[in-house]
Amino acid sequence: MALLEVQNLKQHFTTKKGFMGEKTVIKAVDGVSLSIEEGKTLGVVGESGCGKSSLGRSILRLVEPTEGSVKFNGQEIVGMSPRGMKELRKEMQIVFQDPYASLNPRNTVRKILEAPLLIHGTGNKKERQERIESLAGKIGLRKEQLNNYPHEFSGGQRQRIGIARALMLNPKLIIADEPVSALDVSVQSQVLNLMLDLQQERNLSYMFISHDLSVVQHVSDKVAVMYLGKVVEIADVKKVYKDPLHPYTRALLSALPIPDPVRVRNRIILQGDLPSPANPPPGCPFHTRCPMATKECAEIVPPLEEKTTDHFAACIHT
């Protein structure tokens, strides 16, 4: 049994637009199914606005999903009571993109790390301090630095503090939403190394959300590619990167600038821009930009199907 099992999850936002206040529905997540095994990483990639963050948030019920099922360790959490949810929150934590905004600037790092333990009434004072100091060591902070405030740290250090906070309650699953996107590459690599070390040591599962294809490839076991609220391809990381089946995945991979000036490039240039999620095209959501599109593509919504063993794609022509 998978640690996390998501079935047909939907997250629709209703917004009022214009002076007349016409309502529009944005289907940020539109029928996503996926699973994450214990100790493994599922990478979620896609361009901005495709629904990655909304997916992460609705799995944790930070926003209430519109429809669908999320099972953690076999237990359904959509519709679960607040008390049950509080218990489960210990097991599932989130790390955000912005290490500046996500830490309370008025608290010391010691206080920030202690907060989750206090909320859940974990351990006595001495045990809490021991746990804080041991995790601080893990993320490369000296004991005396625990009494400093977030603004006294660099971006990379702050992101590591964010990770330590997520780990305080010994979770099994961490949803990391663009955890390294705000960081420079040399610092990004420190944080990625830390996340991989911790995973090995604690058998953690990650849902690693990022728009950066090389970072996702580096950390993931499985990868889900999203386009306009839908998963269009999902498979083992090697399959997705070596033998992508969906035309969007192929275009995305070919668009990635490769840091090697002598490599020959075979680029698929997509026409046009991402359609608005408030007004997605009918049929296959990708058909307005797909180089392989035919007439049927505008009519049929392609289901996510198993094309080869454990390799799923949503396209009627592959």
């Binding site: 660099s154 590459v185 040399s186 610092v187 991989l196 090389s214 490839q217 950390v219 990381v237 490769i258």
Partner: peptide, 21 residues
């Protein structure tokens, strides 16, 4: 800087990094 970049085809390998700021 060049060692810090994750390269396609190399998974879960330790990346180079530059200590400090």
């Amino acid at each position: 800087l060049l060692d810090s970049i994750p390269k396609l085809g190399e998974r879960k390998k330790k990346l180079g990094s530059i200590p400090g700021t």
